[in-house]
Each structure stands twice: as structure tokens, then as C-alpha cells.
Design a protein around this nucleic acid. Structure first.
Lengths: 214, 214
DNA sequence: CGGCCTAAGTGGATGCTGTCCACATTGGAG
DNA sequence: CTCCAATGTGGACAGCATCCACTTAGGCCG
């Protein structure tokens, strides 16, 4: 207790051993509560029990760390989507199955947005670029990114005859727009704080609109 | 040239005279290029030719200034919508007119987002609250906020028989979700930098989806 | 017409941030 | 066993929001 009264994670070796991951872990926690702007380099290093400058051995700057957080959060989005799809009760009807898998993509996306708003905002907070939504590091358990999962679900709709093939091109952007917009209304916007049941209804209505309008 | 080599706007009177508006004006310019995070108090006061602390006589803190910027930008969104509606060629057919007025709401919203991405992001950047989208200060020339303009356009669809009355409740959130989501994909997301013609197509497709799916 | 009250602007300080530089340590390759 | 390069440290700097005490002067009251 002589050195200082900082956090907890002390360290006796000069080397940390796994600083990069420790920083990402700490940054994820910061983003979880407080969103991307709460990811502050010095706080992460403090948590890791290391001097601020040590971070620069593993990340070019704050944005690089934030980018790693974004990728990790994106992967969690993918996993939530996959979990939602896995929870779909099995059906004989292939059309119903395709439809359920498609809807699960949207509900998973929006469930994550509501359960982890800070991380969700961090996932899509990209200083000047969010194209990396297709990087491998953003993939879930099945190795697919949220964007890829959406694309596959749409292909499934076409295969099942629920979506005309000529409507397929660009359909991901229509669906993504609607779902992402609702996510923002729900976590930052006028729909923030909506009771869970009503939020769930809103989610279903938006996905209904997409199915009808796509 | 003895005192300092700061910006340009000098001042010989001790009183500034209109500091509050000068700060908002400067902050708007900062947000125009760089979005909400570029709105920095000291920069605004510098531009106004005043010491940083002077801002605190007019705004509680940085967030209060940012809020004023948000309101002003929101009013510009409303004005763009109104302009878009005014540009609709007159028609005999009331249904066509209602439809055109509705679509103008969406195209105006998205035109502003693409023309002034920084201000658009500032308009909807609300630290923990974006409910104030209905404040009077966010109104356009007709005294209506973007949200009110959307509601009226939807009412027009119902009156024209283009939208079933039982679908009307909550419809603003469906439309808003889709349009706002596309705005973000276009200015921050994977659709960023899309050539103007293709962006215009995407806008039309999303509004098509809304009309069909609402 | 003159004095004073108070709103508006100033000056200086504090603690936070990201980032740069030079230096210390040490694990592992040769 | 030695030395190197990767990793962590210490100190510094500029910029930021914000706080406090002080100064200035515009306009109201007598």
C-alpha cells in the first residue's frame, strides 16, 4: 500500500504480459457505460495498472483503440444476431423459416442496441469511416459480420420466394437504414426509455414495414 | 498590433453587445465543418474576440452552447423540408399532392443531411436527450418543427386515402427510422461518398419502401 | 445630472486530456 | 553470455472545460 492508492490491478513484473488485450477490455467497459466518448486512453491504462504512454506501444493513438473497441462490439452484435436466429423454433415450412431468420437479424440488432447502448454506439462510431463493418474482426461465432448475416437472410427470402429477385440488389441498405434508424431513436432519440414491451412492438412494426416495403 | 495576433474580429468596447449570438454563429461554423465534437468553447470565444470565460455569462456550459447549435440546425432542417415542399409542382390531383408533400419531407431531410453533414450530426447529437426535437426554437419558417412537418404530411396521406387511418398512429416513427437510418449510412456509413445520382436513387428507394410498408 | 448596482468581460488557476521525447528495463535470440 | 529490440516509465507540453475573484461600464434611481 506504499506506492499509491490507485485502482486494484497491481503488477510486480516490469512487463505486463498482455497489455493490448487488457486495454481493449478496459476500453470496452468504459464504452459500455458512457459510449465511445467515454473511452479515454488514460483511464484504460490506469485500469490496466500501467502508465498512459504504455498504450502507444500497442495503439497508434486513441482512435486506434476506439477502432478495436468498435470491432469487438460489432462482433457482439453479430453474436446477438446469431443467438436470435438460433432461438427460432424449428419449422417444416421453409418460407416461414427464411422469414424468421430474416426477422431475427433485425431483432438481434435492436436487442443489442437496447441492451448495450454504449457499446452499440461505440460499434458504429467511426471517425470518418464505418466501412470496416465487413472486417473479419467484426465477425461473430460463425465468422460472419452483421452485414453478411443480413445479406444471407435476404438471400434466404429470395430463395423462399418471399422476395422478388429484382428487388434483392441493394435491399440490405433499405433494411439496415430502417433498423439502424430505429435503434437510434430508441437509445438516443424520442423513443428512449420506452417500456420494454412497447419497444418490442416498435421493433416488430419496423420489421413489418421492411418486409412489406422492401 | 501590440496586444496580440489573434483572429480578426477586434473590439474596442468593453461590452461585446451581442455575444450570445456571436457565439452561436461561431459554434455553427465549427459544427458545419467537423460536427458536434468540433464545437469547442474556447474556439468560439476566440472567434468572437472574447476571453473563454465570457461564454459562461450566456451559456451554463459547453453542452448548453451545443444545444443552441442543435436547435438552430434543426430549424434549418425544417426550412429545407419546407423548401422541398414548396418546390413540388402544383397538381390537380389531391392524392398526388399529398404524396408529393410526404415525399418532400423525406427528401428535404436527406438533402440537408448530405449538404450539411456536420450540422446535421450536430442537430441530432444530444447528450442523453433528443426529445427537444419539438421545441419552438427548432422550427422553420412556417413555425413548424421537422417532426411536426412529418406528422402533417402523414395526416395528408390519410386524408387523401393513401394511408389507412389505423396505420396512422406511430407512423412517424417508422418513417423517421428509415429516413434517419439512411442519412447516417450516407454521411458516416458505408454509403458515404456515394455519387450524388446514386445517393438520390437510394433516397427514392427508401421512401418507396416507407410508402409501401408504412 | 450624478452615483451606484449589477450584468458582462477579464485574469489566473486547477485538473483533466492526448501526445511527444528521452530514458530504463528485461526477455529472448545469437 | 551478451546484446538488441520490444515494452514500460517519467517528465513535459499544449489544449480543453470549468471555477473563483476581480474589473469595467451601462443604465436605472434619486
Amino acid at each position: 500500500m506504499s506506492p499509491a492508492g490507485n485502482g486494484k490491478p497491481k503488477r510486480d513484473t516490469y512487463r505486463h504480459g498482455d497489455l493490448r488485450n487488457a486495454l481493449i477490455e478496459a476500453a470496452l467497459e468504459l464504452a459500455r457505460q458512457g459510449g465511445p466518448e467515454a473511452v479515454v486512453l488514460r483511464a484504460a491504462t490506469r485500469q490496466a495498472g500501467v502508465v498512459p504512454n504504455a498504450a502507444y506501444r500497442h495503439f497508434a493513438d486513441r482512435d486506434a483503440l476506439l477502432h478495436a473497441v468498435s470491432q469487438a462490439a460489432m462482433a457482439q452484435v453479430a453474436r446477438t444476431m446469431e443467438a436470435e436466429q438460433a432461438a427460432v423454433p424449428p419449422t417444416e415450412n421453409p418460407a416461414a423459416a427464411a422469414r424468421a431468420r430474416f426477422r431475427a437479424v433485425g431483432t438481434g440488432y435492436l436487442r443489442y442496441a437496447r441492451e448495450e447502448p454504449g457499446l452499440f454506439r461505440a460499434a458504429f462510431h467511426v471517425p470518418g469511416d464505418m466501412t470496416h463493418a465487413a472486417d473479419d474482426t467484426a465477425a461473430g461465432a460463425t465468422g460472419k459480420t452483421p452485414f453478411e448475416l443480413l445479406g444471407e437472410a435476404l438471400d434466404g427470402l429470395v430463395d423462399a420466394g418471399l422476395l422478388a429477385a429484382d428487388r434483392r440488389p441493394g435491399a440490405e441498405f433499405l433494411a439496415w437504414s430502417a433498423v439502424h434508424g430505429l435503434a437510434i431513436l430508441l437509445i438516443d432519440g424520442p423513443l428512449r426509455g420506452l417500456p420494454s414491451t412497447q419497444a418490442h412492438d416498435a421493433v416488430q412494426h419496423v420489421i413489418d414495414m421492411i418486409e412489406r416495403g422492401i
